[in-house]
Amino acid sequence: MKTKHTLLLLFIIPLLSFTTHKYYLSLTQLTYKSEAKSIQIIMNVFMDDIEVALNKDYNIDLQLTTKKELKNNDVYFESYLKEKLLFKVDGIAKTFNYIGKEYDGDLVYFYLEIENINQLETIHVTNNILTKHFPEQQNLVKSKVGKKNKSVLLTKDDNNTTLKF
């Protein structure tokens, strides 16, 4: 029932005289830092969307940025991101460190880092962020290795890609 309401909302909002964000997009920026031998990752998503997703998946009530904000919510974010966001560097699966998050307006920024990468030729990204609850979700991945920039737009059905540098 709840899902139905959310879905309805997606269709109705564009007609109203008050508008909230009407698009469903996340941005994941990957930067390879050769001096630090790490891939630095900054990902941002709309706060209300990720809150809906986590509340449903973990049966919690996050209430982000409010006085009633659920404490230790990083546990859930880390678990969610590690389940939905997967990386392979030169064909080998790599996990990332969850460094933390910060809020900016209606966005949440996550800071993640894959360490001990001496060199790389390809990064394979699987991104399932928010696609379960928001079928229209699009996940933009931008990457920078050395002087090469690559970007790709992932969706629910086209959820992974290999970036070659």
């Binding site: 930067t31 630095q40 900054i42 460094i99 933390g100 910060e102 920024y109 800071y111 880092e113």
Partner: peptide, 10 residues
């Protein structure tokens, strides 16, 4: 970078 600044802050 924004990343390094955040890491430092954490």
């Amino acid at each position: 970078s924004k990343f390094d600044q955040f890491k430092e802050k954490v």
